[in-house]
């Protein structure tokens, strides 16, 4: 990798705007995420954090501004969109595992059909990642037979099988029962420690403090404040940030 490439941001949003009808959901969003950097995005519901995340892999379309992923600009160009989706993995709040396929089949689907990997190689890869999320014994089960925490870990493994450069997490633990949150967060911490570039939308502030390089606070479609975790939690600059932190930390999410 050249110096230029190493210094180039992995993800860059420049003055991104988006409307849903008359309602503005993203207002002048600018953000740069470097290679290997871990970003946690937080904020009240309706602040646009999920929308911003989903714009990065084109699940939503941004209307103004530019988005670059690993140097490739996200436009209406179908080829570029496909290329970006290959490099960006996403984990959803509702897991979204394919119920009609086994865990193993869920994982090998994309490598086989998108990367044209031979089946045996794909299965070996899948088992490797299943082991990494500590769930390899469930390979032949169907998603409905697993607990929520197990399903989310499978979802993480499924995204990882495409060997993405970047992982996006959209509130990955919000739909889980409390006793299962830890197993998923542990996997995410391991992933962070292995050097993966991550953007995480979450309410789990303990996780954020442990893993994040950068905290981003969004409210009503705008980025209000960005800061490293220490500065963010101890000396927030904006009043809105202070208000949000006081609400969220009071209820023990810290």
């Amino acid at each position: 990798m050249s110096d230029g490439e190493r210094q180039r941001p992995m993800i860059e949003l420049r003055h991104v705007h988006k409307w849903f009808g008359d309602h503005k959901v993203l207002n002048d969003i600018s953000l740069a995420v470097g290679r290997g950097e871990r970003v946690v995005v937080c904020g009240p519901s309706g602040s646009g954090k999920s929308t911003m995340l989903r714009c990065i892999n084109r699940l939503e379309e941004h209307e103004q501004g530019q988005i670059f992923v690993d140097g490739i600009e996200l436009t209406r160009d179908v080829r570029q969109i496909e290329a970006i989706r290959r490099e960006v993995g996403m984990v959803f709040q509702q897991f979204n595992l394919f119920p009609h396929l086994t865990v193993l089949e869920n994982l090998v689907l994309a490598p086989i059909w998108v990367r044209q990997m031979p089946r045996r190689e794909a299965e070996a890869l899948a088992l490797q990642y299943l082991e990494r999320v500590h769930i390899q014994e469930q390979a032949q089960k169907y998603p409905a037979q697993l607990s929520g925490g197990q399903q989310q870990r499978v979802a993480i493994a499924r995204a990882l099988c495409m060997k993405p450069q970047i992982m996006l997490f959209d509130e990955p633990t919000s739909a889980l029962d409390p006793e299962m949150i830890k197993e998923v967060l542990d996997v995410m911490v391991e992933l962070a420690q292995s050097g993966m570039t991550m953007i995480c939308v979450t309410h789990e502030m303990g996780f954020a403090r442990e893993v994040a390089d950068l905290m981003v606070f969004m409210d009503r479609g705008e980025i209000v404040e960005t800061a490293p975790p220490d500065a963010f939690f101890t000396t927030p600059k904006s009043e809105r940030t202070r208000l949000f932190l006081s609400q969220i930390l009071r209820h023990g999410a810290g």
Binding site: L59, R85, R86, V88, N96, F98, P99, L109, A159
Partner: peptide, 25 residues
């Protein structure tokens, strides 16, 4: 809708999404 989105986010094109994920279900 999450099924459609998960298939898309994995990089599957429209026809593959339908054939492998959506239509079977």
């Amino acid at each position: 809708r999450g099924q459609y989105e998960a298939a898309a986010s994995l990089g599957l094109g429209y026809w593959r999404q339908m054939r492998l994920v959506v239509l079977p279900q």
